[in-house]
Design a protein around this nucleic acid. Sequence first.
DNA 1: CTTCTCGATGTAACCCGTTACAGATTCGAA
DNA 2: TTCGAATCTGTAACGGGTTACATCGAGAAG
Lengths: 340, 340
Amino acid sequence: MSSSRATSIRQVARQAGVSIATVSRALTTPDKVSEKTLKKVLAQVERSRYKPNLLARNFRSKRAFSIVVLVPNIANPFFAEIIRGIEQVAQQHGYAVLLGDTEGREDREAYYVGLVETRQADGLIQLHPRLPKAACGANGTLDIPLVNACEYIEDAPCPRVGIDNAAAAREMTAYLLGLGHHRIGVILGPDSSPLTSDRLRGYKLALRSAKISSDDALIAQGDFTMSSGSVAAEKLLKAKQPPTAIFCFNDEMALGAIRYLKSTGRSVPQDVSVVGFDDIEFASFCDPPLTTIEQPTREIGNKAMSLLFDMLNGGKPEPTMHTLPIKLIVRDSAAPPPPR
Amino acid sequence: MSSSRATSIRQVARQAGVSIATVSRALTTPDKVSEKTLKKVLAQVERSRYKPNLLARNFRSKRAFSIVVLVPNIANPFFAEIIRGIEQVAQQHGYAVLLGDTEGREDREAYYVGLVETRQADGLIQLHPRLPKAACGANGTLDIPLVNACEYIEDAPCPRVGIDNAAAAREMTAYLLGLGHHRIGVILGPDSSPLTSDRLRGYKLALRSAKISSDDALIAQGDFTMSSGSVAAEKLLKAKQPPTAIFCFNDEMALGAIRYLKSTGRSVPQDVSVVGFDDIEFASFCDPPLTTIEQPTREIGNKAMSLLFDMLNGGKPEPTMHTLPIKLIVRDSAAPPPPR
DNA sequence: CTTCTCGATGTAACCCGTTACAGATTCGAA
DNA sequence: TTCGAATCTGTAACGGGTTACATCGAGAAG
């Protein structure tokens, strides 16, 4: 909080007896400066506590060295993990990450897109299942460097990274079939989410492979919240022919479903098996520990940032999907169905 | 992705037939421009899709219009909520928030402090219980605008916002006493956290008011993780005179404690009451729903950002503590002790 | 000794806005 | 009509770095 203005490169140059160019080079490209001068300059930098003004540097280099991450809700630990993955490689490349918590509102989305249009940020990583309207040019192309992570956008004109949701759902369904279940309920996510349709497709594929016809009475709507999981589970269990296992399209809903089952005196997995998706932290701590699908959240974040970094450095934005492997985590919430 | 360089204010000025100063004024101080010119300029701005380069503007105004939030771990929903509160008012004032997830490492802390020293950011909000070393000047003052939120730093030379942990713990303990408990166990957080000592103080104060002497056998160490809650609960319950209620210094540990109790066949709250602290989202969904202390997370974030904003606008950093009210949330995890 | 090469350094233009200051125009009042 | 004030507009300096280009000096080669 000293009242004098911050020391500038010119002061350092004067006091070190060199030109400003030399100071600049000493700090950014030391090998272009003789050893003697370098030492002299660095000593003076140290002495006068000089910190280069990155606002100026970035202005000159036309780069903000920051990127924004658009996320529906940081309070969701699943997204938080992906953000950590993004930050990790962002920092390796000298980028800072601006947090864009949209809370689902489109005006906030537009605000963050504006940040990159006005060069406050260099690019954007989108964690929503849709493209930000504000970023779309007239001819279906994107105005800004963008990569989409973890939610699959059909035909998006940008690189995407995520998992193969259909394959994952198929694997999980096959696992339940393997335990001997024939009536497997599912609790979907919101319709708007492409995740839902992909996972549903995988589920049906697995049934078909096992020569079991799918039954709409076994499909219940949810919205990824715990309470919706409870409600949906109730609906499924009250059917004429209730399922012996429930596949929830995320862990929160699985937790909700388990809560409902327990509250009605059923035990999991003895009476009904319940499995989830995502492997959030609580999944291993709840009772019973949840069998679920682990998503490579860190890796998704890492990859997304790497892709964006490439784009920012002149790579062209191949609109390809980068699929990362998932893992079926078997814990204790699924077991063979009870004998009839 | 057009190959031409971005349109600059000079182009717009030329095409609108005015000077660059007029364009600048039209965009930043429209009332200094005649209505006719304003219309003409804005039309041209629209037509050429001109977006002012904020890198240049910020450079000129010597402000980055961004602040960094240092957080131990964004994957912790408690912090995530505070961040949302910060972002909310940051955006109102035109500030972006840079996410500083330190993962507890000091080098990352230093990196983020560097961001404000080099003017990439204007100030910093710290969510850790200690001051970043890198930000401390020689004479015990701070080099950068900083406010501390949610964890109490003793004698920090900066504004602080948080709750009265001692009073909150006292209230909770009094509540358990009121239910008829006489042997109340506590599960602490890590020693390094000032939260722990404050809450412990509140607990002891309540006991003294009730003329009950405190017993070290009722105090167990934890570290704010669920598994530490299980371990600590086990230790408490295996004592000669086990507690009839357990006060955990955060919700995660309470969840862990409940899990341990259930696994040993005890039911909560019939056999043992368990209460938490923080009111994380899961607290209302677990079984039984947790009686806990609600922290005003949003408000903490809001207040912290307001304080920082004031500092950035010339207000001097009063090193005062801003205490926000908490709320005791009664759910179903605490009940009168079982009759002996 | 001259000439060439190459590394180290300095000079100054440049990035793209904002804004102090000056000049121009308009309008009302004397 | 003339002058002053108020309003609008333009010119150009400025911010703090980076970097193309010029310059200089030393050592190598001829």
